[in-house]
Amino acid sequence: MSKRHSLHPGSSSNTAAPPKPPVHLSSSLTIADSTLLAGTHTISLHGETVIHPRARIESHLGRVSVGRKCIVHERAVLGAAPVSSSSAAAAVVRRGGGGDGASGGDGAPAGVTLADYVTVEVAAVIEAGETVVGEGTVVGVGSRVGAGAVIGKHCTLTPHSEIAAGEVVPDSTVVYANGMRRTDKRGVAELKNKTMARQIDMLRRMIPSNPAKFA
């Protein structure tokens, strides 16, 4: 009985696995074994962040930086290629005009930056192109954040929300029901962060972490 060779790339030693992206992983990071990291630019994941299985982080277009105490759920994609060329152009325009210092130190042309306490829900997509998501923001299930969009602090994007490329969303905005907007005036940001810290505490015990695989 000869051993059956798997068709999956990287699972057998004689197939050339794609090169691993350079990573900068915190020691307190929780990253599941089946997370996919791909690309050529640096991926930095900061302390106490939790990455669920089957999340995808791509740095083909630029550096991806995830802040502290973030949760990236399964099947979420950070740094996806923009769907339309106009969105990429919007990102370029914004970068030429602003240049707000969000880009990484390695001269990243078009990456993704998540601040602290960001939740990226199941199957949400954040396109690459100097996209910034502010502190405490929740990107809902299956949402799509266009290239170059800048989302403020403590925003809530409800499931299947779409943020256009290059759009700037002010702090505490709630995007709901096919693009309606309102401002969250509850002022529960502190409480939300506290709850999230507890959730992370538990997820760290629950999800087997294997940062060594990606280093």
Binding site: V122, T195, R198, Q199, M202
Partner: peptide, 15 residues
Amino acid sequence: CCLRPPGRPYKGAFT
């Protein structure tokens, strides 16, 4: 499709 159990804070801890 994706099935996942819901989570919430319960007695001071998340479950």
